[in-house]
Computed example of a mutant assay.
Amino acid sequence: MELKYYIYCLADLALITTSLIYGVKLLKKRNYLLGGEWLVVTFSASNVMLNALTGEKLFFNIALFCDAFSRAVGVPVIAVVGMMAVTHRYKPSIGADIAYVVGGLAVTVVVWTADFMVAPKPYFYLVMWSLYSVYVAYIVKKLLNIGANLIAAGAMLALVSAQTIASIDDFYHIPGDDNHAVFYTLAMFVWAYQCVVFYYVYCALERAQKNELNLNRGSAFGGLERTPQ
């Protein structure tokens, strides 16, 4: 086996590990949308590994469907809604969480199977990811506003690297990369990094939100104490 395939498997293992660990961490924070999307990535990457080890094409097809879900709605919609818990104080109900997932699956099936989506599908993926990148840029600004400069730099690196991967996927073929092993290796390392950094982005924004709430409560109680009797 060539060296690039060992690196390919290493990238896949990194993605499986990071998405699983940080997906579970997010579930423990009761963010079922964001944590669930990271576990979808775990499942996808696990099927990529099974395909690499067995050569069974079914596993790769399952991974491609999961990848379509993540690129079409999983990250651009579901993960964004999950992040809105710490950017806009928006926490949907369990019923709404289920509706987002079911709707996302329905959209993915249409994108994956409909004949009319064959030609526009790559552009659809790119537009959806670009909209997600705009939201990440907004997150970077919020991080800078609260003084989390290092985490903001990490998020910006994730934004640029993931947008680069999304922009060349389906549009540019790396010379000599006939089976896309090099591209998939880069993509999996980028996604693994993204799974890690956005957990810490989430935590930083969550802390800032709690500090703001405590400050507002303190101000309110202080105002009551100073109110003339």
Rank of each mutant, 00 (worst) to 15 (best):
E2G: 13
L3N: 13
K4N: 14
K4Y: 05
Y5D: 14
I7S: 04
Y8E: 07
C9G: 13
L10C: 09
A11F: 00
L15A: 12
T18Q: 08
S19Y: 01
V24Q: 09
K29H: 10
K29P: 03
R30N: 14
N31G: 06
L39E: 11
V48W: 02
V48R: 08
M49S: 12
T54N: 05
G55T: 01
E56H: 11
K57Q: 14
F60M: 14
F60A: 15
I62M: 07
L64C: 10
D67P: 03
F69I: 07
R71D: 06
G74M: 01
V75P: 02
V77K: 05
T87W: 00
I94W: 08
A96Q: 12
D97P: 04
D97M: 06
V101N: 07
G103W: 00
V107M: 06
V109G: 11
V109K: 09
V111T: 04
W112S: 13
T113C: 12
T113D: 11
V118F: 07
V118H: 12
V118K: 15
A119Y: 09
P120C: 09
K121L: 04
K121N: 07
Y123T: 13
Y123L: 15
F124Y: 09
Y125V: 06
Y125G: 10
L126C: 07
M128G: 04
S130W: 03
S130L: 09
Y135H: 12
Y135C: 08
Y135V: 09
I139Y: 00
N145L: 11
N145C: 09
I146F: 00
G147Y: 00
G147A: 05
N149W: 03
N149T: 12
L150R: 11
I151P: 02
A153W: 02
A158G: 08
A158H: 04
L159W: 04
Q163K: 08
Q163L: 10
T164W: 05
I165Y: 03
A166Q: 04
S167F: 01
P175L: 06
P175E: 10
G176N: 06
D178P: 05
N179E: 15
F183L: 11
Y184G: 13
T185R: 01
A187P: 07
A187W: 02
F189W: 03
V190R: 01
V190Y: 00
A192C: 05
Y193Q: 12
Y193V: 06
F198I: 11
Y200F: 14
A204G: 02
E206S: 08
E206P: 01
A208E: 04
E212P: 00
N214K: 13
N214A: 14
L215H: 14
N216M: 12
G218D: 12
F221T: 15
F221Q: 15
G222D: 13
L224H: 13
T227E: 14
Q229C: 15
